[in-house]
């Protein structure tokens, strides 16, 4: 039990929360970074290797394209259907190889990225599929290369949808980062368990909830703001909203 009347209580609380918040942001930031770096290309490939897609025939082979599409699709489905807690434990050997340990915020980045990558890849896929196929047709007619079409047509045109997808992705990363904290990771989840649960400190518990809530709200707000800003057309905006709804519906943490 924690003594709330002790003169050290408030400074201690502050310090614990600061550390926890810092660790959470650290985990979330890097997990998000890897998620975008890996999830974005996977999402693009998922669309591209579809029939009639930009990368239908990688290295001139239609069969390879089909196989690549199936494999990516399978991996993404698998990644999304394994419960996080099981994924986290199952990949401990892998995490050890990559980070050297499976405990602590740095180690947590590995499972957090792994759970978010397939999710974000789907969001990217959905957003790009919403881009009018006429646009890549027009780009082809101008003699644009595939790479240019990805860079200058797909990504900018799908940006509003992808940003909303990113907002939902970051929310679930934060959620899962708390779960990591419960097991071994540090961060706000750890604060909630060690102080709020094990030492019955309601203040810690409430503070953690508020901080997580605020972080999520800020990130969502920023993402939505930019999504709106980049959605140039009224169609674009309603498109962004539909994708937003789809994203929420598909989210592993629910609406």
């Amino acid at each position: 039990m924690i003594d709330t009347t002790s003169p050290d209580f408030w400074p201690d609380l502050f310090e614990v929360l600061l550390l926890g918040t810092g660790q959470t942001l650290y985990m979330v930031f890097f997990a998000l970074l890897f998620t975008v770096l890996i999830g974005l290309p996977i999402g693009i490939l998922l669309v591209g290797t579809e029939r009639g897609g930009l990368f239908e025939r990688p290295f001139g082979s239609l069969a390879f394209g089909r196989i690549l599409n199936r494999v990516l699709d399978f991996i993404v489905n698998l990644g999304r259907s394994v419960p996080f807690i099981i994924l986290m434990i199952a990949i401990i050997p892998f995490t050890r190889v990559v980070v050297g340990t499976f405990i602590g915020p740095t180690a947590a980045i590995v499972p957090l990225s792994l759970v978010a990558i397939p999710f974000f890849a789907r969001m990217v896929e959905i957003s790009i599929k919403e881009v009018d196929p006429g646009l890549s047709e027009a780009a082809h007619s101008l003699g644009a290369s595939r790479w240019l079409i990805v860079r200058k047509v797909f990504i900018p045109e799908a940006l509003p949808g992808m940003l909303l997808g990113l907002a939902t992705t970051v929310t679930s990363i934060i959620n899962f980062s708390a779960m990591v904290g419960v097991v071994a990771g540090g961060g706000l989840g750890n604060v909630a368990v060690t102080y709020g649960y094990q030492r019955y400190s309601t203040i810690h518990m409430v503070a953690v909830i508020i901080i997580i809530f605020v972080i999520v709200m800020i990130l969502q707000g920023v993402a939505t703001h930019f999504a709106k800003k980049f959605a140039r057309t009224s169609i674009g905006e309603s498109r962004a909203q539909t994708i937003g709804r789809k994203v929420v519906r598909d989210s592993p943490v629910g609406p």
Binding site: G134, A138, V153, E157, F230, R232
Partner: peptide, 16 residues
């Protein structure tokens, strides 16, 4: 293709 321009019924302009 760069020497062959094409115009489309639904314009196909980049909205961004």
């Amino acid at each position: 293709r760069q020497g062959i321009g094409m115009v489309f019924q639904h314009f196909n302009l980049l909205s961004s």
